[in-house]
Design a protein around this nucleic acid. Structure first.
Lengths: 198, 198
DNA sequence: CTAAATTCAGGCCGTGCGGTCGAAAAACGG
DNA sequence: CCGTTTTTCGACCGCACGGCCTGAATTTAG
């Protein structure tokens, strides 16, 4: 693949992301995306087989970048509790710097359907959840965490972090770092064993 | 409004709910809804001004019923902690019995946009969140809860409950009651003050 | 320099959408 | 029983969509 081809693809993907984020999945037509990129519709058709292929590339690229970003933060921690806090902080940090991409991906994953009417990317975002699940199971096995259902915890933590994104989107003035520390505290209290105090 | 009119409207609303839940907001055309209800498309137009009005009625009806369901459970409790647990349990119980309606409402609220491209029902589901926020603020004021940001907690609890719905939708065998008790425990630990133990 | 390959613009087409129309059918009132 | 109103229907309209095709501009290769 030539250099100019790759550049065009990146440009089109970027335009698709900003368009989906701005007007939503349903209104993100090829015409609007082409308009956003200031190119003709057929350029998109030339570089991507069809709309589905374009959206799939959008999701693929963002998810990959996301996982690459979080990895070093997770690997730097040794205890399950530390990894959990790092997970929350790094996922939130990535969201702060890439919220446009993540909103677009969320729109696409939720709304993109196959001909049968069922979602296509059902398990695509399961990767970060699986990572989190592993952390929780490890903490339970080593006895670092209290007894709980790791599935419920993983789901709730994921949802809680996503909630920060949602809230931030609606209240742009929010201090996401402070929000993140609240979440870290919240889930530390929710996972740690009871300690004798005073 | 006559009796038969009300019946037709309810039938159409029910068909809209099941259609949106089955094939998603984007694919839920008037034709498919009419097909689901086994009536002609124009019957919908006769009883509702347009598609937007129909969807608004769907959201309105479900949200109203939802609030009516939860009220007595909340009023039965006196302490903030009790009200919080009742909130989680009753909201989850309603979800178990009305998941089709709630999935439809979620689809509509997220995807329905005005001509400007911005969501229309942005604050519609803010009512249950406000209720939850009041509980949390009350608990903080009376000193029953630890220090935290009520907004973050309210958001996280709401998201956590919604996560149960999502997980249940993907794993139908899930024991929602057990899931709910995990959530109650989780958020009790996250909200209560540190206690001296042993 | 020329010819082949690549890249891009504009327009066309079939499809399905939300919504409307006039007529048929059903329900109602005297 | 008939006339009126309410309700339903299938046909139809204008529109925007995704996809495709044609052809011109640009780049590359020999």
């Amino acid at each position: 693949m030539s250099f100019i081809q790759a550049a065009r693809r990146r440009q089109i993907i970027a335009a698709a992301i900003s368009t989906v984020t701005a007007v939503g999945y349903g209104q993100a037509s090829l015409a609007r995306i082409a308009d956003e990129a200031q190119i003709s519709k057929s350029v998109i058709s030339y570089h991507f087989a069809n709309k589905d292929a374009l959206l799939e590339q959008v999701v693929h690229q963002v998810v990959d970048d996301w996982a690459r970003y979080m990895r070093p933060f997770l690997d730097a921690e040794t205890t399950a509790g530390g990894r959990l806090a790092a997970y929350i902080r790094s996922r939130l940090a990535y969201m702060r710097d890439n919220h446009v991409q993540l909103i677009a991906v969320a729109e696409i994953v939720v709304n993109h359907r196959g001909p049968d009417g069922k979602p296509v990317f059902a398990e695509r975002d399961a990767a970060p959840v699986a990572e989190l699940l592993a952390i929780l199971r490890e903490g339970r096995q080593t006895g670092e965490f209290r007894e709980f259902d790791p599935v419920v915890l993983a789901m709730t933590i994921t949802q809680g972090i996503d909630g920060a994104l949602t809230y931030w989107a609606e209240h742009p003035g929010t201090d996401l770092t402070a929000y993140g520390e609240e979440l870290v505290t919240l889930f530390r209290l929710a996972t740690q064993k009871k300690e004798r105090r005073k």
